[in-house]
Every structure is written in structure tokens, then in C-alpha cells.
């Protein structure tokens, strides 16, 4: 099994060399989703995906350029050809797979936690805040709980603090630093909710060469353990690795 993976990897890597000669790969990201991708003090795109993406391009011998795009239109702009990949903490879901292709995941699926001000909130029927258009919002909509949607993530936390919402449901890696910084005010409560199939890189369906190239590069990073190192560096010791 491993051998075949390696063989395809070598094959695809050589295909990557062919690609490199005639195009620059434009990498689309949001730039506002720490620690996955964010704009650092110097105004550059930084984060787990920036570091990972640069290394992947390096291994595939591609010239890569980072492009910021608003989250809401990130997929329409990919299929329209304004950039070639999406690395924006995007969870692989069936819905998204109908429209674009994903590489294998570069972060294992992590269940989403609830955050609240106290342990004894009613997650079953209470008011749960989530960001509009996220997997978490879609999940809460199907539970008996009352969903309240905000345009940005900051507003969901502000709503929790002001008592508008009883709890917030969001990605673990995104909530973790917020809970850590709140010095005990915010707590993880209840059971975590498994959503999606891990995080992968999105590419156009018509661009299968590029997908294979990056797939191979991700495989090689999984093989030699460098992906795990990056995961631990950005998400801490306890994060799920390969």
C-alpha cells in the first residue's frame, strides 16, 4: 500500500515539475482565521496554512503566491479561476465536494466544542450562537436549540459575554486561544460535535493535475512526520496528529 502511494507521489511530483514551468499557483486564503491563516503585525499572511502551503509548494517545486479573498465568495472565485487553490481552514464536506475537489486532509477531523460562561447551560434547548454560513450554524439549525447567527466570529463571543447567547459553537482550534486568554471566564462545556471530514486543500474539479501534485506533497509530509511537527507547533501538544 505504502509503495503505491510513494509511486504515485513520485509520478505526481514529476508532473508538478511540468506544471511549474508554465504557471504560478495562486493560493487563496481568508487571512482572518488564526491560527490557520491570519494577517500578522507586518501585514503579511501568516499561520499554520501559510507555513504548510509554502512547504508544499517547495516540495512540488511550484512557484506559489498568496491571495486574500472574502470567505463568502471564496469558492465562487476559485471555480471562476481567480486563484487555483483554497487553503483557508476549509473543512471537507459532501456539499463542498459536489462543487470542488479536495486533496487529502492535512488536519484530521476535530470535533467542534461549545463554549459558555458556566457549566450548567442547557445546550439542548438554549440559545446557541454561531457564525453565519458555517458548518456549526447548519448543525445548530437542525437541533432543537435556538440558533442565533452573527456575521463575524467576534460578535458571537461578544453575544455570549453580554448574555444574548447561552453558548457558542465554533471550530476547536479557533476557540482554544480565546478560551485560554479569557482567564477562566469562558469554559468548554458539553460534548464536542463531530463535523466534516478534516481540513483539506480545495482545487477546481477540472484541475486534477494540480490536486494530484499537492496530494503527493501532503503524503510526503505525512510520511516524514514534518506535517505533525507543524500541527504541534501551531495547535499545541494535545492536538490530533497523523
Amino acid at each position: 500500500m505504502k509503495k503505491t502511494i510513494l509511486a504515485t507521489a513520485v509520478l505526481a511530483l514529476s508532473a508538478g515539475v511540468g506544471l511549474a514551468q508554465d504557471r504560478t499557483v495562486r493560493m487563496g486564503t481568508e487571512g482572518a482565521y488564526a491560527p490557520y491563516n491570519f494577517t500578522n503585525d507586518a501585514g503579511e499572511i501568516d499561520g499554520f496554512e501559510r507555513e504548510l502551503g509554502d512547504e508544499l509548494c517547495n516540495r512540488a517545486e511550484l512557484t506559489c503566491e498568496w491571495v486574500k479573498n472574502d470567505w463568502d465568495s471564496i469558492i465562487p472565485n476559485l471555480v471562476s479561476g481567480n486563484y487555483d487553490t483554497i487553503m483557508a481552514g476549509m473543512t471537507v464536506t459532501d456539499e463542498r465536494e459536489m462543487v470542488i475537489d479536495f486533496t487529502q486532509d492535512y488536519q484530521p477531523p476535530t470535533p467542534s466544542p461549545y463554549v459558555a460562561l458556566s457549566e450548567d447551560v442547557d445546550l439542548e434547548t438554549g440559545v446557541i450562537a454561531a457564525q453565519t454560513g458555517t458548518l456549526q450554524a447548519a448543525f445548530v439549525a437542525e437541533t432543537p436549540a435556538t440558533l442565533i447567527e452573527f456575521a463575524t466570529f467576534d460578535e458571537t463571543i461578544a453575544a455570549l459575554r453580554s448574555g444574548e447567547a447561552d453558548a457558542v459553537l465554533a471550530d476547536l482550534e479557533y476557540l482554544a486561544p480565546v478560551v485560554e486568554d479569557s482567564s477562566g471566564e469562558l469554559l468548554f462545556v458539553g460534548d464536542r460535535v463531530p463535523l466534516g471530514k478534516g481540513i483539506g486543500m480545495g482545487v477546481r474539479k477540472s484541475d486534477s493535475d494540480l490536486r494530484d501534485t499537492f496530494d503527493a506533497a501532503i503524503s510526503s509530509m505525512k510520511e516524514d512526520g514534518s506535517l505533525n511537527e507543524l500541527l504541534i507547533k501551531w495547535f499545541g501538544e494535545n492536538t490530533a496528529t497523523y
Partner: peptide, 14 residues
């Protein structure tokens, strides 16, 4: 914020 997915026309369009 939109409660229980009750929104205006733009909310549903998006």
C-alpha cells in the same frame, strides 16, 4: 443577528 434562520431576502439569497 438572525434568530432561528429568520431573515430578510438577502439572508436567504446568501
Amino acid at each position: 443577528p438572525a434568530w432561528q434562520q429568520r431573515g430578510d431576502a438577502l439572508y436567504y439569497a446568501s
